[in-house]
């Protein structure tokens, strides 16, 4: 598919995200505890971590929607940030196109919205109500809504968590393709180690309120499970997440969709 940027996409000025000593406290507990993070422009990073480790908290901090939480640390993020939530979060009382262009101004807003919808394969569904779409279609609308803003930073919080395995594979390819075209920096939160390896060029592990590991993914795309390097990276990530990979056949590893061989 597309050439792998590795690290040579730094066409925009400065890092896309820089966080230093980030602290966020819930009920006296430091969910983020002195977290440092830098994302280069156009970089695709995945964030994994145990449930409750603070992944969503970090994303909300980067999106600037965590009001009223005790916070400290330095944080700089671009102005144009888009968020894809785990639920598609479409306004049920607005038609699909109006959802995509929500908050956009300018005479060409509708046209841009149409283009974005076509990009995610939903051209022609502009006048549908969100409730008339399937879960995967709704998630694609949410993706179109994020991309139509041409964000410098795309934050996605388990965007495919609710989808079936087949739809997920399609969405992975779509996301990767759209990222290639629009080149935002991406921070993708996921539970799924295979999803992280398949999509990202860098996998971050969040633990005890900090980035505990930062692993580059240098495998060529498209990355299908299989092969020594893949297995090694996967085992390493699972170990970091506290899942002891049992040599007999890794029963607690998530089932990988698609047959590698």
């Amino acid at each position: 598919m597309a050439p792998h940027p590795g690290g040579l996409t730094g066409t925009r000025r400065g890092p896309a995200v820089r966080a230093e000593g980030l602290v966020r406290t819930y009920a006296g507990r430091r969910v983020l505890d002195g977290l440092d993070l830098t994302l280069a422009p156009g970089e695709f990073a995945a964030l994994v971590g145990r449930s409750g480790s603070g992944k969503s908290t970090l994303l909300r901090a980067l999106a600037g929607i965590d009001h009223g939480i005790p916070a400290s640390g330095a944080l700089s993020a671009p102005h144009d940030v888009s968020v894809v939530f785990q639920d598609a979060r479409l306004l049920p009382w607005r038609r699909v196109l109006d959802n995509v262009v929500l908050g956009l101004t300018g005479p060409d807003a509708a046209e841009r919205g149409r283009t974005a919808l076509a990009e995610v394969g939903l051209g022609g569904r502009e006048r549908a109500w969100p409730t008339e779409l399937s879960g995967g279609e709704q998630q694609r609308v949410a993706l179109a809504r994020s991309l139509v803003r041409d964000p410098e930073l795309l934050l996605a919080d388990e965007p495919f968590g609710a989808l079936d395995a087949l739809t997920r594979i399609r969405m992975h390819a779509l996301l990767r393709r759209l990222w290639d075209r629009h080149q935002p920096a991406v921070l993708l939160v996921t539970h799924d180690v295979d999803e992280a390896i398949a999509l990202a060029d860098r996998v971050l592990v969040l633990e005890e309120g900090r980035i505990a590991a930062d692993l580059p993914v240098t495998l060529p795309t498209p990355r299908t499970p299989g092969g020594h390097a893949y297995a090694q990276l996967r085992a390493k990530l699972l170990a970091l997440l506290g899942v002891t990979d049992d040599p007999a056949g890794a029963p607690d590893a998530p089932a990988t969709p698609g047959d590698p061989t």
Binding site: V83, R89, L91, W93, R94, L102, G103, R145
Partner: peptide
């Protein structure tokens, strides 16, 4: 969650009223 969404797409007060509050 819709309020949160409105914040992330940076709706102004008036647009927030028009697109989220009143239809909701």
């Amino acid at each position: 969650r819709y309020v949160e969404l409105a914040e992330t797409v940076r709706l102004g007060r008036a647009a927030f009223l028009r697109h989220v509050v009143l239809p909701g």
